[in-house]
Write a protein that binds this DNA or RNA. Structure first.
Length: 299
DNA sequence: CTCCAGGCGCCTT
DNA sequence: AAGGCGCATGGA
């Protein structure tokens, strides 16, 4: 096993790992267990330190620092946000929220599953896909060997491309099954090269992503932001739509998603994508509760 | 029971 | 261009 300790900057692990960016993290007591790039890890925050455990020896931890975005200067990022009431409330509600830097394929596949699903349901689907199509990998600290604790890497596109639609539907994908299958097959056929997207401007990368079945503007923006690190991507989902409407256009009749995206470009600054994630988490944890309690009072 | 979930694709106006 | 609807599945 390998174990290492990092000095921990401000970091909100629940908001970051379980807040709808990534779907494979599980809280176990006061630790977080997940799989990054086919490698099982356990994160144990303790005060100003983060201890990290893996099954095998690791000499270079750059992949982990990168995934967790430990090198993001949150203070500098937050300073670029507009100084208005909603953003002050959003940043104050989860000061250590960070944008992960995820693997593009896993992120793309996961968000294809996300449409009209709740986060817990997406986690469920991703877990089923990994169990049924992913490569088994050692988990836990003991050096595994036969019978040791195991988990699964996220399945490759090649493996999913070889699956049947029925097998994918059996992972509770529903109508999204043909979307994921078609996407895996397009990558397998070389119709779209996910690596190349790193080298082209956001608008072109978005157009490439939108060629995949089941990928429209919102899912493309999630992948651009969560995997390709494009801060000019601002995913507008049902939560952000309701939040922006209430916080910035309370008197307007109904502002559509396209108009809200244009507003975000001019209003949230160069780190708009980061601001979006703070707003998303804020509305889900604070405003969402207010909305649902208001509904129950009405009923 | 109904309504909704980190939407998309397709069909009408 | 803009809006409506169906799509699977499970939870509130």
């Amino acid at each position: 096993m390998a174990s290492v300790e990092f000095l921990l900057p401000t970091y909100d692990f629940p908001a970051t790992l379980a807040g709808g960016q990534a779907f494979r993290w599980k809280r176990v007591d006061d630790a977080w267990e997940g799989v990054i790039l086919g490698r099982w890890v356990r994160l144990r925050p303790s005060g100003a330190r983060l201890s990290i455990e893996t099954p095998g020896p690791i000499s270079d931890w750059a992949w982990l620092v990168n995934y967790l975005a430990l090198d993001d200067d949150l203070e500098a990022l937050v300073a670029t946000f507009p100084d208005d009431d909603p953003m002050r409330a959003a940043t104050a509600s989860s000061p250590g929220l960070r944008l992960l830097r995820q693997d593009p394929w896993e992120c793309l596949a996961s968000f294809i599953l996300s449409s009209t699903k709740q986060i817990v349901q997406i986690q469920d689907c991703v877990r089923l896909l990994a169990e049924r199509f992913g490569e088994p990998i050692p988990a836990g600290l003991s050096d595994p060997g036969p019978g040791g604790p195991m988990t699964w890497a996220f399945p490759s596109w090649a493996r999913l491309a070889a699956a049947s639609e029925a097998e994918l539907r059996a992972c509770k994908l529903g109508f999204r099954a043909p979307y994921l299958l078609g996407t895996a097959r397009m990558i397998q056929n070389g119709e779209v090269d996910l690596l190349r997207l790193k080298e082209i401007p956001t608008a072109f990368a978005r157009a490439e992503l939108e060629r995949f079945p089941g990928v429209g503007r919102k899912i493309a923006d999630c992948v651009l932001l969560f995997a390709y690190r494009r801060q000019d991507a601002f995913p507008v989902d049902v939560w952000i739509q309701k939040a922006l409407q209430q916080l910035y256009f309370p008197k307007a009749r109904k502002v559509n998603a396209d108009r809200l995206r244009r507003f975000s470009e001019s209003h949230f600054g160069p780190q708009a994508g980061y601001a979006q994630q703070y707003l998303f988490h804020y509305v889900r944890t604070v405003l969402g509760r207010q909305w649902s309690s208001a509904v129950s009072k009405r009923g």
